[in-house]
Structures are given as C-alpha cells and as structure tokens.
C-alpha cells in the first residue's frame, strides 16, 4: 500500500485509504513515520475517503502523532466520517488529535 502524499507550503498532506486494517496498518505507520522524520514534523491527514479503520489503524495514527510531537510538530486530521468520529470518541482519540471539517481549516490552523 502506498499512501498518497503531497506537500503544501511545508506541510505534508497524506490521504488515507478507504479502508485501513491490520494488514496495512504497519505499512502506513512506517510511511507516516518516514515522512515525519524526513519532513518538518507537520502532517495533515485526509480521511475523506476513509470509511473503515480498526484498532491497529488507530495505533498507527497515535504512533505518527508521537513521532511528530517529538520533533516539535503535530498531526491534524480532517474529513472524518461520522462512523470514524464515533470510533475516535469511543477510544478518546478525539482528545489528543485536532480534528477539522476540511483541508483548508486544517492547513490554516497548522500554519
């Protein structure tokens, strides 16, 4: 699995896939970590296409957040479906990530 990535004014924007399960979560974790370590630690994740994710995907996102914050950066999320938001609320991940409705709001906040 190759995550789609682009850079916007020094901020890395990565689109997560439609489905993120354990078979791909480790790969996603590695790619996000590499991106953070080689970039400036500022990452925006696009979840507009992500309809389903499991606990291993949650772990991969938390891992990327820790990597970013160690580097003085952060990870913001946008485009979350109501189902994924319910998962974030159940797991309380919504308390550690900043979550925005759309990309423009996430990029504005990160600048």
């Amino acid at each position: 699995m190759q995550l789609e990535h682009e850079s916007r004014d020094g901020i890395d924007v990565v689109r997560l896939p439609n489905r993120l399960l354990m078979a791909d979560a480790a790969d996603a974790r590695t790619q996000l970590k590499e991106l953070l370590l080689h970039g400036n630690g500022r990452l925006v994740l696009d979840l507009t296409q992500t309809e389903f994710m499991d606990s291993s995907a949650c772990g991969a996102l938390v891992g990327s957040l820790q990597t970013a914050r160690k580097k003085g950066g952060d990870v913001y999320l946008f485009g979350m479906s109501s189902n994924v938001r319910a998962l974030f609320e159940l797991t309380r991940l919504h308390t550690v990530f900043q979550i925005f409705d759309d990309e423009a709001a996430a990029l504005r906040a990160m600048h």
């Binding site: 499991d54 938390v62 159940l90």
Partner: peptide
C-alpha cells in the same frame, strides 16, 4: 477500560465489549 488515548495498542477488546 479503554487504554489512554496516547497508547498505541490495547483497544481491540474494549471496542468489542463496548459495541
């Protein structure tokens, strides 16, 4: 009990039991 949000694992069974 759900693990702390900063934890990378341990959410599977709490999710199963919650839903």
């Amino acid at each position: 009990t759900m693990p702390p949000p900063e934890a990378e694992g341990g959410r599977g069974w709490p999710m199963i039991l919650a839903w």
